[in-house]
Amino acid sequence: MSMLEGFLYKPKESPLHKLDPRSKAVILVFYTVTSLIYLDPIVLILLLLSVVLLSIVGKCVREWSKSVKATLTFALVIFILNVLASPGLGYTYALAMSLRFLSLAAAFSLYFLTTPPEALALSLEAAGLPRDFTLMLTLSLRFVPTLARDLQIVTDAFRSRGLKLDSGNYVERLYNFAKLLTPLIVFEIRRSLMIAEALESRGFGGAVKPSLYKPPKMSLIDYMITAGGLVALGVIVCYHLGFPQ
């Protein structure tokens, strides 16, 4: 659970929080592409260090390091698997593979920590994505706490009728938890119907293309970062492919 928390938005005042999700996405693409084309551990460590710097700028070192710590186990597994599976390639290769995973996770975690999901959905919609998709994104995040509460309600109801969820061995407990699923699924299907009804009643799904109330605006800094990110991306890709002679 703590790993997932490292990907949840934390509202704060920082230069990173103020950036438009789109310009930040360009930087994220730069990190992704770079870490995927380079297998040099030095480059990957430099990438990782730059994410550390960015997390300081974004004032979310603590939350960010939590998610990185959680991914360390996976990185270790990747290292061991690579050493075992391809002994011919050596430790450097295995190290690069786990560093690649680590830097990707670190960059994505920082992105989601500093980007409110609704701002992301809004900028995606402004970029031309249909509302059906952006609404799916906002709704799924919006109803996470509701779902957690529903689970609590169902659990309480079953407990009060004598279902044992805290005692017994793992198999018994798992078996008892599975009993919660049917009512919970019925509960949520019913809820989703009610949400759909409300959406329809507010004109959703109409024949016209939805308009946007207060569309997100890119600032000068956003444009500069986008331009800089795109240039850097171009340079890296060209360098990797070999500059045209």
């Binding site: 507010r202 959703f204 939805p210 308009s211 946007l212 109330y213 207060k214």
Partner: peptide
């Protein structure tokens, strides 16, 4: 409050 107006494609100034 703007959601319904958005869905029905109202122009931004009218929405506001």
């Amino acid at each position: 409050i703007a959601f319904g107006l958005e869905s029905l494609g109202f122009p931004p100034d009218e929405m506001e």
